[in-house]
């Protein structure tokens, strides 16, 4: 049985832990709101980019000499996974689930006889995968999106990927990231970046067809060659924004749970503390009374 003083110390230390977790929860909540706003603000560009690409792709359909970013290298032997995690922990299962999915995908692709390479984003992916998958990691980037994610950072990643692609280092590139559904639910998502498959909704095509054919200035192939790398950056940017929002959402939930757990522990400890205090008093009384009776 712990002494009263020990119990008091434990209660005090858990109370200060609780203060920290609840402060972190507040911080996470405000960062989450900011991240969501940023993701919201980036949506118009991505949508319009997509619209432009689908009209371009529609007009280029059936051409044989399509851009390699669109058509692929003609093989799917070497897969590159872009693993998006955070730099910091204390975010519940945020990083662990990404890393688990990455390992699963590697195993699955290996069993099909493919080669897998990795590019990691964020300290957590690097640290976790370096040990057992170290030889696969082509490149690691950390400190992304600090203090806030800028488009140039996504562009730098896209450029690095394009350089590897031009160097024929991989055939297919997929990003693994947490898609933000709500503050309590993040879904691990895999999205293929290279070769790019334009979304084809029947609606858009019908609309485009009724309008007629676009003029291109300069010619369509050349525009496509400029548009596709840009689109890659936009897709990475959108995915990373999603991942940042997920990170803060996950952290907020984790910190909320931690705060609640701390509260529960404090309650139980308080009860134990009061009981043992009473027990000590009762014991003393009994000793006094029985001492008096013995006289």
């Amino acid at each position: 049985m712990a002494t009263l003083k020990e119990l008091r110390n434990r209660i005090r230390s858990i109370r200060s832990t609780q203060k920290i977790t609840s402060a972190q929860k507040m911080v996470a909540a405000s960062r989450l709101r900011r991240a969501q706003e940023q993701a919201e603000a980036a949506r118009p560009y991505a949508q319009r980019m997509e619209r432009m690409l689908s009209s371009l792709a529609a007009s280029l359909k059936g051409q044989t000499n399509a851009a390699p970013l669109l058509a692929g290298t003609g093989s799917d032997q070497v897969h590159l996974l872009l693993v998006a995690t955070s730099d910091r922990g204390l975010a519940g299962g945020f990083n662990a689930s990404i890393i688990r999915e990455t390992r699963r995908t590697i195993r699955q692709l290996e069993s099909q006889g493919k080669t897998v390479k990795l590019v990691t984003l964020g300290r957590k992916a690097r640290d976790a995968l370096r040990r057992d998958q170290g030889k696969r990691i082509m490149e690691s980037r950390i400190e992304i999106g600090r203090p806030r994610l800028r488009f140039e950072e996504a562009q730098a990643i896209a450029q690095a990927l394009l350089a590897l692609y031009a160097d024929k280092q991989f055939d297919v590139c997929t990003i693994v990231y947490n898609h933000f559904r709500s503050a309590i639910s993040q879904i691990v998502t895999k999205q293929q970046l290279i070769p790019f498959s334009p979304p084809e909704s029947a609606n858009d095509n019908a609309e485009a067809a009724s309008r007629g054919v676009y003029d291109f200035e300069p010619e369509d192939g050349q525009i496509l060659n400029e548009l596709l790398p840009r689109n890659l950056a936009v897709q990475i940017y959108t995915a990373l924004l999603d991942s940042v929002a997920s990170e803060w959402g996950a952290r907020m939930t984790a910190m909320d749970n931690a705060t609640r757990n701390a509260g529960d522990i404090i309650n139980t400890l308080n009860i134990t503390y009061n009981r043992s205090r009473q027990a000590a008093i009762t014991k003393e009384l009994i000793e006094i009374i029985s001492g008096a009776e013995a006289l």
Binding site: Q38, A41, A42, P44, Y45, F151, V234
Partner: peptide
């Protein structure tokens, strides 16, 4: 007329 940058409308 719409002018969009990657970061916002």
């Amino acid at each position: 007329f719409e002018l969009v940058s990657p970061e916002r409308l």
